[in-house]
Design a protein around this nucleic acid. Structure first.
Lengths: 211, 211
DNA sequence: ACATAGTTGGAATGTCAATTCCAACTTTGG
DNA sequence: CCAAAGTTGGAATTGACATTCCAACTATGT
């Protein structure tokens, strides 16, 4: 997560203390709005009003709307991963995996199943229309999937998981179940689909347990 | 799929032969554009140009853009389900399920993994912003999940699937794996994630086979 | 304290989208 | 064939949005 890397030049800029705060406030506000209304559905004037900043501030810190969207992607990735720690770093038992997945289910219920996954929603909206956004989303999903795979790999290294299990594939499958489950839950306004989707994959993983 | 049901009144209208054709052409064109650019990313002028119609025609047949979006949702649902038949109606063996899922994977590869699921993409974009769209998407997913569940139920009725298996939950899990797998594949531009996601759930279903 | 660089407000610009209007044209039922 | 209803073209309207400009203000380092 760097200050600003855009096509063309490094274009580094020093930020003053207040400037950093303004920049953060813009990103957080934009992230919140875009989560509910999508990136395309969120206008610069919307963000101006919600964050209490002027247009020039947004363009000063992000260049253009796409620049802001990219910053939002990175911010959501950092934020969501941070929120899931430390659980995310110890997914090396079925119990830990279940507990972790369950946390997301409760969170989904708490918000009435409105809104899907902070990253998945952006991914669906931007994957085909913004090449640089897609690239960042690839790394967002990689950063998310990594800890899952690591946890499974540790289980396997310890001999708890069958050596025939493809931990990378299982990690991908679990992430996909989370994404698909979230989407169905968002549409149906019930976390049931998410729970069933995740549960199926977890059961499958469990079937690879040794003993 | 009826002619036009919008909030307010039935507002039925007779369509002439040419009118029906124009209406269809608009829907198909809009569906195609919205699949690639999203509903919000597709403007009426875009559709006018691509379908070779005037603005008044679009507003004459659909009232407003939201009306067109609703028609597109129904059209995509009908089209996708029709395309998957007759396979969709005989998902009562592991082989049939695998073959069916594999078809989608090949299709995804053929288009270079650009674009996700015709229905899922719309769902992600519209679920939170358009209540009537969400309602139709609920039924779209139901119409899709139904045949999967029926197939599993038949297997169970025949005694091929354990009586302890929750066929409804398994059907939901498979649909979720398809959705999540599609999304990851779309972002990564590789069908691998889709294949792994689906494969995990199919293996899980297979574990419920009797014998 | 001074100069430089970063920050902010707010108006102005240009583009484009959604929607409305209305007049002209065509099909259909009787 | 006539009237009613359906269809179409194209211009006009209104509003919003992304972006630019520039002048004024503030912090920072020396």
């Amino acid at each position: 997560m760097d200050t600003s890397v855009k096509a063309g030049g490094p274009e580094r800029q020093r930020l003053t203390k207040g400037g950093r705060r303004t920049r953060e406030r813009i990103i957080e506000t934009a992230a919140e709005l875009m989560f509910h209304r999508g990136a395309r559905g969120t206008s610069i004037p919307d963000i101006q009003a919600a964050a209490g900043v002027s247009a020039s501030q947004i363009y000063h810190y992000f260049g253009d709307k796409q620049g802001l969207v990219l910053a939002v992607i990175d911010h959501q990735t950092d934020t969501q991963l941070a929120r899931q720690r430390p659980l995310l770093d110890s997914l090396d038992s079925i119990e830990a995996l279940r507990e972790w997945c369950d946390g997301a289910a409760s969170r989904q219920d708490d918000r009435g199943c409105e809104g899907g996954c902070e990253i998945g929603s952006l991914a669906s909206e931007l994957a085909d229309s913004d090449q640089s956004a897609r690239t960042r989303l690839v790394s967002a999903f990689d950063r998310w999937e990594g800890p899952i795979r690591s946890g499974l790999a540790r289980m396997q290294a310890r001999g708890e998981l069958s050596e025939h299990a493809d931990t990378a594939a299982l990690a991908t499958a679990l992430l996909a179940a989370i994404q698909g489950g979230m989407l169905l839950s968002q549409v149906r306004r019930s976390s049931t689909a998410y729970r069933q989707a995740v549960s199926a994959v977890l059961d499958h993983i469990e079937s690879h347990l040794v003993r």
